[in-house]
Design a protein around this nucleic acid. Structure first.
Length: 478
RNA sequence: GCGCUCAUCGUCUAGCCUGGUCUAGGACACCGGCCUUUCACGCCGGCGACGGGGGUUCGAAUCCCCCUGGGCGUACCA
């Protein structure tokens, strides 16, 4: 008993792990961001830590409230709840200003009066001459630092030695400090820049493990000296590899939908997206299917790969089909009803929606396909596909179809079994083979040649509606 | 260009740290078969990879070096 209790208390212990997801609200939540958010979320939940959400809106020109809302909505859809936030950097400028002043006073930062144009020119020249395009330090040791002249504030980076850190995914990474630039931390307009605020925020929010995209490894050695200059403890880092498109270039719109919410509209289930995203870069032996609870239990940075991965829509689709087939039928039905409504299909006088969806489940990969496949159940009149009609609704089907009607109307109840029996009785009485009328019934009922089984459809549609459709088909035989 | 980094089937990956059990395992996709009232589902089978070259070693996918290729960064963007 005792070990068990110990286990439980260990499982539920609160940990001091504090992680964060810090998107910039300049667009929707994309696939890559979602995976980063997911990894952070899983780590926090697994360890009983805290997941902080912070909106990085220091770029006033590009940040919008709509983007923030879209990101929040996407996280909610994926089931990624956070414990603190969202914090907005735009509301913390006082703090940043204070810290910049502190660095200025301590001589760890300085004012730089070079104009953007001058810098651009120097950069181009250096590059053209094969030198490093880094800031040349013109204002680094300037004696007078007039406050009333337009200027930026630069952080004085160490110019010798090396900066290294042990990445939790990639291992030890080190940089020579002479590669580091004196980063601008405050623009001419007085606003602080990303590399500075991210340090202030992560430090003051107590973040002790930074899990972020691979594209930030180069920022890390520039940020570490700032933590040190400010007297903050340096957090641990884990850089998650990028997600690439099929051509191995960075994933972008031309590779298809990159917005998480676009997949919802396309008929994907959030659990499929979560499952797909987590397996892109992380693995757990040969297992492929993971519920969120299993992920919280099993996820670990130890099993995250170091190399970039290609986004594979086909596998996502497969997972989606899996979750459609195995999901809660009432929930799936509700979701399909939503898509049907969006498509303008009136369902109130139609057959039982749950039965309809159940009949379609295993032949659909998305909710949208499910809704499209369900359409015929609710149609007032069936529109026949030309090829189907020409092939199966031929004049010789008149008697067989009439015989089907006769036997269906003789049924006492309308279940799959009774319909099957009615068909059997009809074949017995007429000597017809299924192939001589089955496909015609299918076309009469649906207008197409691919659908759930006739028995099932008739059971769902009911005797009256089924016979009505078959009669309508008899009218157009030729 | 420079810096950082990565490298197993077409794709996601297991294996690599602690060399032999790897004639390299799983999954998606693809191909074939079975099942079958169509379409699917499902089941069975197949195709398919250690980027190249040097080492180290009795033995290397596994360790070391070089090359090549990819990704990221190199902003008064984040």
């Amino acid at each position: 008993m005792r070990p068990f209790l110990f286990y439980n208390s260990w499982r539920n212990r609160m940990s001091d792990l504090r992680v964060r997801f810090a998107p910039s609200p300049t667009g929707y939540l994309h696939i890559g961001g979602a995976r980063t958010a997911l990894f952070n979320y899983l780590l926090a939940r697994k360890e009983g830590g805290t997941f902080v959400l912070r909106i990085e809106d220091t770029d006033v020109a590009r940040s919008t409230q709509e983007s923030t809302d879209a990101i929040l909505q996407a996280m909610d859809w994926l089931g990624l709840s956070y414990d603190e936030g969202p914090y907005y950097q735009s509301q913390r400028s006082e703090l940043y200003q204070e810290k910049i002043d502190q660095l200025l006073e301590e001589g760890k930062a300085y004012r730089c009066y070079c104009t953007a144009e001058e810098l651009e020119e120097k950069r181009n020249k250096a590059q053209a001459e094969g030198r490093k395009p880094k800031y040349d330090g013109t204002c680094r040791d300037r004696a007078d630092q007039p406050i009333d002249q337009p200027h930026v504030v630069r952080f004085r980076s160490p110019d010798s030695g090396e900066t290294a850190f042990d990445d939790k995914i990639k291992g030890r990474i080190s940089f020579d400090n002479d590669e580091l630039d004196d980063l601008i931390i405050r623009r001419t307009d007085g606003t602080p820049t990303y590399n500075f605020v991210v340090v202030i925020d992560d430090a003051t929010m107590g973040i002790n493990l930074v899990v972020r995209g691979d594209d930030h490894v180069n920022n890390t050695p520039r940020q570490i000296p700032m933590y040190e200059a400010l007297g903050f403890p340096v957090p641990e880092f884990a850089h998650v590899p990028m997600i690439l498109g099929a051509d191995k270039s960075r994933l972008s719109k031309r590779h298809g939908a990159t917005s998480v919410m676009a997949y919802r509209d396309l008929g994907y289930l959030p659990e499929a997206m979560v499952n797909y995203l987590v397996r892109l870069g992380w693995s757990y032996g040969d297992e492929e299917i993971f519920s969120m609870d299993e992920l919280i239990e099993k996820f670990s940075l130890d099993n995250v790969g170091r190399s970039a991965g290609v986004f594979n829509p086909e596998k996502l689709l497969w997972l989606n089909a899996h979750y459609i087939k195995n999901g809660d039928i009432d929930r799936i039905t509700g979701l399909v009803a939503g898509h049907l409504a969006e498509m303008g299909v009136k369902t109130e006088n139609g057959p039982d929606m749950v039965a309809v969806v159940r009949s379609l489940l295993e032949r659909a990969q998305t909710l949208v396909e499910l809704a499209e496949g369900a359409r015929f159940y609710f149609a007032d009149t069936i529109e026949y596909e030309e090829k189907a009609q020409n092939k199966f609704l031929t004049a010789d089907k008149k008697e067989p179809l009439e015989a089907v009607i006769k036997h269906l109307e003789a049924m006492a109840e309308c279940t799959e079994e009774s319909v099957e029996q009615a068909f059997a009785a009809m074949m017995e009485a007429t000597g017809l083979k299924f192939g001589q009328f089955g496909p015609a019934v299918r076309v009469a009922l649906t207008g197409t040649t691919s659908s759930p089984s006739n028995y099932e459809m008739i059971a769902i549609l009911g005797i009256e509606e089924s016979c009505k459709r078959i009669r309508a088909a008899i009218e157009v035989l030729k």
